[in-house]
Design a protein around this nucleic acid. Sequence first.
RNA 1: GUGGCCGUAGCUCAGCCCGGUUAGAGCACCUGGUUGUGGUCCAGGAAGUCGGGGGUUCAAAUCCCCUCGGUCACCCCA
Length: 419
Amino acid sequence: MADSTYRAPKGTRDILWPDSARWRTLVEVFADVVGSAGYLQVVPPMFEHVEVFRRLGDATDVVSKEMYEFLDKGGRSLALRPEQTASVVRAFAQHRPVVPWKVWYAGPNFRYERAQKGRFRQFDQVGVEALGPDDPHLDAEVIALAWRFYERLGLRRVSLLVNSLGNPEDRTRYVDALTAHFSANADALSAESRQTLATNPLRLLDSRRPEDADLVAAAPQMIDHLSDDAARHFEQVRGALDALGIPCTVSPRLVRGLDYYLRTTFEFVAEALDAAQDAIGGGGRYDRLAEAMGAPPTPGVGFALGVDRTLLACDAEEVFEAPASAVDVFVVDTCGGDEAVLVTDEVRRAGLRADRAWDDRSMKAQMKAADRSGAALAVIIGEDECSGGTATVRDLRGDAGQETVARTDLIETLRTRLP
RNA sequence: GUGGCCGUAGCUCAGCCCGGUUAGAGCACCUGGUUGUGGUCCAGGAAGUCGGGGGUUCAAAUCCCCUCGGUCACCCCA
């Protein structure tokens, strides 16, 4: 075991092949799904002025306890992004693109917390943000994109929870009602939850502590505190989802971890995972965030999906498997390797993936390497082929045997024999 | 931030409780098994600061303390 200096820092890790291949494919699938809806990629910086993230709310742990903050050499107070919505909205406020502005992103975020399964200090998310329209159909589009993405991966056991936190006034009234409810029964709450009550009463609805369960179950419901306007919006969102055939469960106690959400909120839960990491994605409306960052008042809605947890869910459902091989063809050359240089280049230029053996090893060793590479075919160049201007193509996966062909016919032979 | 469990070859682990000759196994890796051919089999080989530091002891992988790391749960969140 190496010195801990030369290990990836706590809460981080290296993604090696084949996981890295699967990782990249996931992002490609995501880009394809949201690209089909006209979403454009945005690549924000990985750090921002710390105030950008403070806009997310000081009462959230993500901001108050988990941010990687630092001063740069110019004395600027910066923070690694704990999520990307804030950066995207900041970019919106900075560039003032015409609305609707529909964008997607993929990349790492950073939160200083204890690592565990499905939770890392550097973790990747893919997501979309749509700014401009207040239209409930946009909420439904955004939700549907995530849903279609999961479908494309092959996930079957994802459920969608939705809720509405109402307009700002509704939300305030609800928080008051919640505070009254819990304060009246504060003795029954766990000590930690009493603390939460003082700082962020909404969060109590998320408590997993058994001693809080009864009180949480008896708590007033947001759904009863919605204004007509917010209720109508929520109804239309659900109506559109229903029309799209996307099943959702209204979850009156669904509150999201970031304070900027208003009105529609939603979460995707992987039924195949344990509760500690089953929230594989979530999002909602944040209609006040843009103006908080200096833009004209602009509604917005979006989601972020955790790449790691989504892949955990894929593992649990045994879908979206990693590729079996990195190459199609493996070149074996026992007459010095000069031919291998040319043949691999030719095969690669023909659009096939090719690797070869090194260090002029024995045929046995090279064939072993060919087998291990996962390639479907080996191209063998020995003494006979060298002098005869031929190459032998051998099937490594089935029982199709081998044949020796003219070098000029090699590519065509490979193409014919590859699956 | 709190708590449980764990840390011996690249990987999975045995050995630790009852300190004592050159620290083992399987998988993976390398070389062979004569006349160019992998996937099975056989033989051999290479590979370990026993996470790190300190302590107890004639002697520590083994006992004690600290520390770092991993893992799981809580918290929180993706």
